[in-house]
Amino acid sequence: MSSLLAVVGGILLVGGTAFLLFGAIGLVRMPDAYNRLQAGTKTTTLGTLLSLAGVACLHPEWALKLLLIGIFLLFTNPLSSQVLARAAHRIGVKKAPQTVVDRLEEDLAEKDLGARP
């Protein structure tokens, strides 16, 4: 029983690490800050959750605390990425040349024009 748990835990840990690796590759390959954030957020969330699940299999007595870490992670990870993306957009970080549309910039430009006398 415990050896089966160890095998499952090992597989989960390897899976989690693989997603973290793909996220790191994404950070290097993506062309701009927004796409990098996308790569960073999704893979670190699933990668870390899988790793936590793996550790929970290897050390069942920690499961409750690991669950707690997972919950905090699910809430704080996307939130911090969103704040970073918003800050990047506000200070005008350049978008990749492939970018096809930016509704936020259009709307902000419209509001600025409307505010002027």
Binding site: F19, F22, G26, Y34, N35, K42, Q98, V100, E105
Partner: peptide, 26 residues
């Protein structure tokens, strides 16, 4: 959706041509 998004992202970052068409929509 979380698993799907990770698999899709993995496929993008591992493909040599990096097939993205980014933008900000409302």
């Amino acid at each position: 959706e979380l698993v799907k998004s990770n698999l899709r992202l993995t496929a993008i970052v591992l493909s040599p041509s990096l097939p993205i068409r980014p933008g900000i929509v409302k």
